[in-house]
Design a protein around this nucleic acid. Structure first.
Lengths: 164, 164
DNA sequence: TCCAATTCGTTCGTCTGACTAACGTTTGAC
DNA sequence: GTCAAACGTTAGTCAGACGAACGAATTGGA
């Protein structure tokens, strides 16, 4: 048996048992966020893998279509991809002829990344695939709930990303 | 319905949106989920690191308190930690004397993992820390919105985790 | 005008987490 | 008694987040 030191564990039980109820884990928002994102990410990756794409490909292509040709630094800050990782992503997109990378004549430190016609077409395809995934991920939610979730998450993300 | 907030979606008017409105990236739920989770995870990890803990430590300790002593396989399915990764987590917890791992006499394939008194105390501390993080993460949301978000995420997670 | 600080792209490397494969031991079903 | 499955474990892959540093180019200030 345990030798001596009869510790009273009332400290632990007093706080947790009745006040928090069961399933503290199951209701922990940070954990829910993690789990939901893991599942969502996995589905996105699987779906995009069917057309030899990765998540970041979409982010870059969509940003290029929205804001036009731009430097990698701009792409980095707009997509949230780290500058160092962006290099690889652009390489992959160039390999697939979806974007072009050329030195900026007005500022030779920069590269101008431009969406190509195939890239634009590819983006349309990715849009469709992501719409499918979105439907899978949000399957148990009504349209109103989906809108709600999107709104809440937007508030969170915007709030935590406004000092760059 | 989305009551209140009259001008909510106002970004889409600038560009020629034949296929889709502008800001498709910013409103993509799967992406929002990812970004929110990344931020949340980072904060959780930083906070837990201050007491030499990791995220999974909490999951295991909380599960042990809720369901009592159990095998690693049970812990795995309840926490979502892969069996292979769980080994390391249990090792770390054993090193810190927060749990005990002993062979199950009734089934010698299994290990029975048991929460110790220090483990119980540690769990209380982690609870407090996670409450702080939760406040940071959900800062821009009202209590009602936090409840809403938790509910929506719970629906998602429950729906996608019922094949074990 | 010249020098210092900054920006940009890039390389390299670290760290964590999700996930698979395989293997020996043990158990239960047949 | 045999065989399939469950269990814990080891090893390893892969992607993503993140930091450090560096050369080339640019900008701003003395």
């Amino acid at each position: 048996m345990v030798g001596g030191t009869p510790h009273d564990v009332s400290v632990a039980t007093a706080l947790s048992d009745k006040t928090m109820g069961a399933g503290r884990l199951r209701r922990l928002p940070t954990r829910l966020l993690s789990l939901a994102a893991i599942d969502s990410d996995r589905r996105v990756n699987e779906k995009l893998a069917t057309v030899d794409a990765r998540r970041w490909h979409y982010a870059v292509l969509a940003t290029l279509e929205e804001f036009g040709p731009q430097s990698q630094a701009e792409l980095s800050s707009r997509t949230g991809i780290y500058r160092s990782d962006l290099v690889t992503v652009i390489n992959e997109l160039v390999d697939r002829s979806l974007v072009e990378r050329a030195p900026d004549s007005t500022d030779r430190r920069r590269n101008l990344v431009t969406l190509t016609a195939p890239g634009r077409r590819h983006l349309v395809k990715l849009d469709a695939l992501l719409a499918e995934v979105e439907n899978e991920v949000l399957a148990p939610l009504s349209p109103a709930q989906r809108e709600q979730l999107t709104r809440l998450l937007t508030v969170l993300v915007d709030h935590h990303s406004r000092q760059m």
